[in-house]
Simulated scan of single mutants.
Amino acid sequence: MESSRLDRRKAHTRAALIRSAQEFLAEGNSAATIREITDRADVGFGSFYNHFASKEDLFDAAVLATLDMFDEWRAVATVGLTEPAELFATSYRFALVLVRSQPLVARLALAVGPRILTIDRGFRQGALADLTAGVAQGRFVGDPQHLFMMVGGAFLGTAQLLLEDEDLDAESTATDLARRVLLMLGLDRREAERISAIELPPAPQA
């Protein structure tokens, strides 16, 4: 019993440190000190090194934890879908809609910048798998790696726009971009419009 209580306390401390690091990264403050990070996390300074060897290790863990959220959201958005174009477009649209409902995640991803497109977790992992399957099945045309960098760049640019312009409707913007991306990937207009109109689940709130 005492062991399980200790494990829960350790998990809580680690999660608090990661959340604090995510907030600093989302604010563009990668220069935050360990003291500032532990103060915001409301944990003792000495506890830090029980979980991470350095601030850089913590920041890496914070980025990976953020990317892993995309896997969870992708699973929610694509329930019942198996066709690669539908999987790709639906998860792509849902991730863009989440820019508004999950601003911390969006700001962190944008703060990391294009490097986030090279980390094989979360967004990249799922989208690249869909693009690879789509090319193999003749749905998409091109090299999957090159296609991913193109659609990933469009995603980051549109995410920045959604954060800066509150008058833009997130869902209609995401749908329009997904339709255009599908056309670029090789689908015809009718199919691109059908797939980009697949109903999305409610976006989880922060």
Results as ranks from 00 to 15, higher is better:
165 D>P: 06
120 D>K: 05
77 A>L: 06
12 H>E: 15
180 R>W: 03
135 V>L: 11
144 P>W: 12
30 S>P: 08
205 Q>T: 14
47 S>I: 07
55 K>G: 03
87 L>V: 08
135 V>R: 05
157 G>D: 12
194 R>W: 05
46 G>R: 07
177 L>F: 01
114 P>K: 13
137 Q>A: 15
205 Q>G: 10
167 D>N: 14
11 A>D: 05
56 E>K: 14
34 I>L: 13
85 A>D: 08
146 H>T: 14
53 A>W: 09
93 R>C: 04
169 D>A: 07
140 F>L: 08
124 R>W: 03
160 Q>Y: 09
160 Q>F: 12
131 L>R: 08
93 R>I: 04
142 G>N: 10
144 P>D: 10
141 V>N: 04
141 V>A: 09
148 F>S: 00
55 K>P: 01
169 D>I: 02
147 L>A: 10
174 A>K: 01
125 Q>M: 13
123 F>E: 00
43 V>L: 07
186 G>I: 07
100 R>V: 06
17 L>M: 13
43 V>T: 07
129 A>L: 15
81 L>S: 05
181 V>C: 00
97 V>F: 04
50 N>W: 09
20 S>K: 01
36 E>V: 06
134 G>P: 07
196 S>G: 04
37 I>P: 01
62 A>R: 02
155 F>H: 08
149 M>G: 05
158 T>F: 07
53 A>R: 15
118 T>E: 15
163 L>Q: 08
1 M>F: 11
49 Y>H: 15
196 S>N: 03
31 A>L: 10
25 L>T: 02
117 L>K: 09
119 I>R: 06
171 E>M: 13
82 T>I: 10
4 S>Y: 09
12 H>W: 13
37 I>G: 02
96 L>I: 15
22 Q>M: 12
126 G>Y: 12
178 A>I: 07
88 F>Q: 02
15 A>W: 02
25 L>E: 00
78 T>C: 10
131 L>A: 01
16 A>P: 02
43 V>H: 04
143 D>Q: 15
6 L>D: 08
122 G>Q: 05
195 I>A: 02
3 S>V: 12
42 D>C: 14
27 E>K: 09
188 D>K: 08
149 M>P: 06
128 L>Y: 00
190 R>F: 09
24 F>K: 03
196 S>V: 03
31 A>Q: 11
49 Y>T: 07
114 P>V: 10
163 L>H: 11
175 T>V: 10
158 T>M: 09
131 L>P: 03
75 A>P: 02
193 E>N: 01
193 E>K: 09
93 R>V: 10
84 P>F: 05
179 R>V: 03
27 E>W: 14
145 Q>C: 10
201 P>K: 09
66 T>Y: 05
201 P>C: 08
45 F>I: 15
59 F>M: 13
155 F>R: 02
122 G>I: 04
159 A>F: 01
10 K>M: 12
19 R>P: 05
81 L>C: 11
203 A>C: 12
28 G>H: 03
5 R>L: 12
146 H>P: 00
66 T>G: 11
122 G>K: 03
146 H>S: 15
21 A>C: 01
156 L>S: 09
145 Q>F: 10
5 R>Q: 08
123 F>R: 04
46 G>L: 11
144 P>S: 11
85 A>N: 01
163 L>P: 00
71 D>P: 04
121 R>D: 09
3 S>Y: 14
86 E>S: 14
6 L>W: 04
92 Y>L: 07
154 A>W: 12
50 N>G: 15
40 R>C: 03
87 L>F: 04
174 A>I: 10
188 D>H: 06
60 D>E: 15
